[in-house]
Design a protein around this nucleic acid. Structure first.
Lengths: 339, 339
DNA sequence: TTGAAAGCGCTAACAG
DNA sequence: CTGTTAGCGCTTTCAA
C-alpha cells in the first residue's frame, strides 16, 4: 500500500485521475465504462492512476449526465412478515448481478403510505419499480405510469396491472384449499386471519375460499379476524377464540402459515386432535410448516422466484425486450398431515 | 385534474416550474427547500406551478450540487433470517422520518462480498452506513473509515468499532446461558448450531458459553454444526444427529431460536421429555419461542431497537452531536419452560 | 426579497 | 484512439 492509497478519500474526482494519468477526463471515463476504443497502454496508465488514488466514481454525477440511475425501488408492505424479505432477496440478487442497487420502502400495508413512498422515491429517478400488490391509490397509479420506468407489481394477479405483474392468483389459491377441505369431507369450516382490510391478498384468498365452499353447498361457520398483523401468537389466540364460539368446527382455514402454526400450537396445548377432530390449513409454504411434528397442509407461494422474475423482467425491458404483461408463477398445493 | 397534470412526467425541471411561475430557478429552489426569505405571494405562485406541472425535484442533481445525499446504506448478512429484516425495519423507520432513503446490501455472511458491496455503495456517496458486526476485511474497514460519513456497526460489541457500535455482547449472552444451565443442574451439555465460520456472532456466543461451563468445571460433551444457515429443519435434524452420538445429554444449547425450536420439534416427534430428560435453550427471543406449547428458554436480543438506535446515532452525528462510540442495548434472559 | 453566474462530477456528441 | 465542448438539474455565492 502506498501513501497515495492511504490518503485517498471520497473527494477524488475523475479529473484528478486524468491529471495523474496524463490523459483527458473522457479517456478515464471510457476506461471506467469499458468502452472499447482505448489503447492498452492508456488503459493501463488510467487503471494505475485509479488504483493509486483509490478513486471511486460518483454515480450521482454519472446518473445526472446520462439520465439513467442504477437504482431500483422495491416497495413492500412489511419487513416483519418473512414473505416480503424473501421477495426482496430474490429481486436484490438479480439487481446486484446487473449492477443495480435496491432502494427499499416499507408501506406497512397502508396504501396512502405507499403513495407517499412512491412520490419520495421518484425523486431518485429509479430505473425500475417493484411494488407489492395490484391495489394502489389513484395518484400512486398515476405516478407509476408517468415514471416511465418499468413497473412490476408482484404477489398478485387478480386485477389489472399498471405495467407488468408477476405472481399468482390469491383467489385461485384460496379456492383450491376450499375445494380440498370440502373434498376431504369437512363441512363445519371456520377461518382465522389477521386484518383483511390491510392484507388485501389474504382477503382475496378468503374470497376464493368461500366461493369454493359455496359452489359445493357449504357455508363458512365462523371467522376470527383481528386488527393486527398475522403472527403465531395471533393464530394461537385466534383459534382459541373461534373454537370458544364454534366448538363443533371440523376444519379451520388460516390466512397464512404463521397463523396456522399458531393455531396448531393451540391444539397441542389444548389437546385437540389434528386432523382427527380438527383440520388445519395455511398458506405460503413456510419452513415452519415443515418443521412441526405434523407437516402443515398448505399452499406454497413462489416468493423468492417472484422477486427474481420481477427483477428479471425489469432488466429485460431496460434491455429492449418485451416481457409478458402478466406472468403467472403459480402455487403448489402441499398435502400435509393436518387436514 | 387539469390537462397539465395529465401531461406531467419526470422530465419536468425546476426551470420549467420557474418559467411557469414567472420567477427565477433560485426562487423555486428556495421555496422548495423552505428558505425563509420568499414573499408569500411568490411562494404561492411557485407552489401553484409545482402542482400544475406535477414537478418532482431531482435529488441526484440536488445531491451533486450540495455534495450531500439523502441515502443511507444498510448492509446485513441475510434477509432469510428474520433477525436482520428487523434491524433494517428499525433503521428504515427512523431514516424515513428524517427524509432519508435506505439502500440495502446483503452480504450473505461473506466478508469479501461485504467488501465489494461497500465499494459499490460508496459510489452513491451515502450520508451514513449501518453494517452488521465488527469483523470486516482490512480494505472494507479502510473504505468505511475514509468514507467520512458516520458508520455504525450493529449487533455486536465484542471488539473495536470503526466509528460507532450499537448492540450487545454476544459472548456475554452465551456466558449467561452457560451459567444458567449449569446452575440449574445440567452437566452433560451439547451444542447445536449452523456455520460458525460465517455466523461470527453465533461463534462468539458459543465461546462465551463454553467459557462459562469451563469456569464451573463442566466441559461441552458434544456439538453439531453444519455448513448451512441456521433453520428450523437444521435444528431438528441437528439435534437428532447429536443425540445419536451422545444419547446421554441433559441439555443442549442452540445457536439461535430457530435451531432451538427445530430441536424442540425433534423432541416432540421422538418423545423426548423437555425439560425432564433434556433442557433446550436458544437465542434471540423470537415470537416462535413464545408460541410453542412450552415457552423456549432463551435470551432476547433488542434487534429492532438496535436498528433504530443506529439510525438515530447517524442522524445525531449529522446534526453535529457526538453519540457514544459504543452503545450497549443489552439483552434479556427469558426463563421459559424448556430448561 | 430576488436574480445571475458558476460549478458539483460526469458523459454524449462531435472533431481531430 | 483521444480530446474539446457543452450540458445534465440543482444549489452556492454574490450582487442588486
Amino acid at each position: 500500500m502506498t501513501i497515495d492509497e492511504q490518503d485517498s478519500n471520497n473527494s477524488v474526482t475523475l479529473s484528478e485521475v486524468a491529471r495523474l494519468a496524463g490523459v483527458s477526463g473522457m479517456t478515464v471515463s471510457r476506461v471506467l465504462n469499458g468502452h472499447a476504443s482505448v489503447s492498452a497502454a492508456t488503459r493501463a496508465k488510467v487503471q494505475a492512476a485509479v488504483a493509486a488514488l483509490g478513486y471511486v466514481p460518483n454515480r450521482l454525477a454519472g446518473a445526472l449526465a446520462t439520465a439513467r440511475t442504477q437504482l431500483m425501488v422495491v416497495i413492500i408492505p412489511s419487513l416483519g412478515n418473512i414473505v416480503f424479505p424473501e421477495v426482496l432477496r430474490g429481486a436484490n440478487e438479480r439487481f446486484e448481478l446487473a449492477g443495480y442497487q435496491a432502494v427499499i420502502g416499507v408501506s406497512d400495508y397502508d396504501l396512502d403510505r405507499e403513495e407517499q413512498l412512491i412520490a419520495a422515491m421518484q425523486s431518485w429517478r429509479p430505473s425500475g419499480w417493484i411494488v407489492a400488490g395490484l391495489e394502489h391509490t389513484p395518484r400512486a397509479r398515476q405516478m407509476l405510469r408517468e415514471a416511465r420506468s418499468p413497473v412490476v407489481e408482484v404477489m398478485d394477479l387478480d386485477g389489472e396491472p399498471i405495467d407488468m405483474a408477476v405472481g399468482f392468483s390469491n383467489a385461485g389459491a384460496g379456492r383450491e384449499m376450499g375445494a380440498y377441505l370440502v373434498a376431504s369431507g369437512r363441512r363445519r369450516i371456520g377461518y382465522v386471519g389477521g386484518n383483511l382490510e390491510r392484507d388485501l391478498r389474504a382477503a382475496k384468498r378468503l374470497q376464493g375460499f368461500e366461493l369454493a365452499l359455496q359452489e359445493r353447498g357449504v357455508a363458512l361457520q365462523g371467522r376470527f379476524t383481528a386488527n393486527a398483523p398475522s403472527s403465531l401468537l395471533l393464530g394461537r389466540a385466534g383459534l382459541a377464540q373461534l373454537l370458544a364460539r364454534h366448538p363443533d368446527l371440523d376444519a379451520v382455514y388460516c390466512s397464512n402459515d404463521d397463523m396456522a402454526v399458531g393455531a396448531m400450537m393451540h391444539c397441542m396445548a389444548a389437546g385437540i386432535a389434528v386432523p382427527g377432530q380438527l383440520a388445519l390449513a395455511g398458506f405460503n409454504g413456510l419452513e415452519i410448516g415443515e418443521a412441526v411434528p405434523q407437516r402443515l397442509t398448505t399452499i406454497r407461494s413462489p416468493r423468492y422466484r417472484i422477486g427474481q422474475q420481477a427483477a428479471e423482467n425489469i432488466l429485460a425491458r431496460i434491455g429492449g425486450a418485451r416481457p409478458p404483461r402478466r406472468e403467472d408463477l403459480g402455487f403448489e398445493f402441499i398435502a400435509g398431515q393436518t387436514g
